[in-house]
Simulated scan of single mutants.
Amino acid sequence: MRFAPPNPLRIADRASGLNSLSVRSHNERLVLSLLLQSEATTRLEIGEKTGLSAQTISVIVRSLEQEGLVVRGEAQKGRVGPPTTPLMLNSEGAYSVGVSVGYRNTHIAVVDFIGNVQHQRVMPHKTADTFDAPEALAIEIHQAIAGLSESRQARVAGVGLALPTPPIRSGPDHDVLHRYLEAELRLPVFVQNDITAAAGGESLFGTARQLQDFLFFYLGARLHGRLVLNHQIYNGNSPLSYDVGVLALERALPAGDPSAARLWEQHPSWPPMGPALADWQQACAESLIKSTQALLQFIELKTVLLSSFVPPEICIALCKLVQQEIPFVNAVVGRTSVAPKAVGAASLPFSSRFMVN
Rank of each mutant, 00 (worst) to 15 (best):
2 R>K: 08
5 P>E: 00
6 P>M: 07
8 P>Y: 11
18 L>M: 11
20 S>V: 10
31 V>A: 04
34 L>T: 12
34 L>W: 04
56 T>Y: 09
64 L>E: 11
77 K>E: 15
79 R>T: 12
87 L>Q: 08
88 M>L: 14
110 V>Y: 06
116 N>P: 04
118 Q>Y: 03
119 H>W: 03
120 Q>D: 08
120 Q>G: 13
121 R>D: 15
123 M>Q: 14
124 P>G: 09
126 K>H: 13
140 E>D: 15
142 H>C: 08
148 L>N: 11
149 S>C: 12
153 Q>F: 05
154 A>M: 10
164 P>I: 00
165 T>V: 14
168 I>W: 00
168 I>Y: 00
182 E>Y: 09
184 E>Q: 15
192 Q>H: 09
198 A>C: 12
199 A>H: 02
199 A>N: 01
209 R>D: 03
211 L>Q: 09
211 L>S: 03
212 Q>H: 10
218 Y>C: 00
218 Y>S: 14
221 A>F: 01
225 G>L: 01
225 G>W: 10
233 I>V: 15
239 P>V: 00
243 D>A: 11
245 G>F: 00
247 L>G: 02
258 P>L: 01
260 A>P: 07
262 R>W: 07
266 Q>A: 12
270 W>A: 04
273 M>N: 06
275 P>A: 14
276 A>T: 13
278 A>K: 11
288 L>M: 03
290 K>C: 11
291 S>A: 15
296 L>F: 00
297 Q>M: 08
303 T>F: 05
304 V>C: 07
304 V>Y: 02
304 V>K: 01
306 L>S: 05
315 C>H: 01
319 C>D: 05
319 C>P: 14
321 L>V: 05
328 F>E: 14
332 V>A: 10
335 R>N: 12
336 T>F: 06
341 K>E: 11
342 A>R: 01
